[in-house]
Amino acid sequence: MTPIYISICFKVIFYCFKKRPLRKFLELAKSVTGWILFIILAVIWGSSFILMKLGMQALSAYQVAAIRILSAAIVLVPFGVKAFKNVAKEKRVFVILSGLLGSFFPAFLYCLAETRIDSSLAAILNSLTPLFTIIIGVTFFKLTAGVKKIIGVIIGFTGLVLLPFATHQGISFNDLSYASLVLLATICYACNVNMVSRYLQQTASLHVAALSFSFLLIPAFIILAATGYFQLPLLQPTYLHATLASALLGVMGTAVATILFYMLVKKEGPLFASLVTYGIPIIAVIWGLLYGETITLAEIGCLIIILAGVYMVNKK
Rank of each mutant, 00 (worst) to 15 (best):
C16T: 13
A123D: 05
L303N: 05
V251W: 10
V193P: 00
I286E: 00
L297N: 06
K148Q: 14
L248G: 15
A166Y: 02
M252W: 14
M56P: 03
F157T: 04
L248T: 14
I223L: 13
A66W: 10
A226C: 11
V81R: 13
Y262W: 13
K267W: 07
F38V: 02
S212W: 09
I259F: 14
L290I: 15
L51G: 05
F213P: 07
F230I: 09
L264E: 12
I223S: 00
L163D: 01
W45S: 02
L100P: 05
A122I: 10
K266D: 15
K266A: 14
A107L: 09
F49D: 03
I259R: 01
T33W: 11
F140Y: 11
N126W: 06
A242L: 11
K85S: 12
F261I: 07
C111Y: 05
I136P: 00
L290F: 13
L121W: 06
V75S: 09
L143N: 08
I134M: 14
L131H: 04
L244P: 08
K19D: 06
F140W: 13
M263I: 10
T296C: 12
C191G: 07
L307R: 02
L26W: 13
I150Q: 11
I222S: 01
F261M: 14
C302N: 02
G46D: 01
H241E: 12
S60L: 10
M263S: 13
K89D: 12
S180G: 11
L59E: 03
V64K: 00
P270E: 04
Q57W: 01
I222T: 07
V32K: 05
A83Q: 05
V276E: 05
L307V: 08
P78A: 03
A73T: 05
L206M: 13
A73V: 08
L184F: 13
R23A: 13
L121R: 00
V138H: 05
F17C: 03
F140D: 08
R68C: 09
R198N: 08
A284T: 05
A83L: 10
I136N: 10
Q57A: 12
S47I: 04
V93I: 13
F173Y: 15
I259N: 02
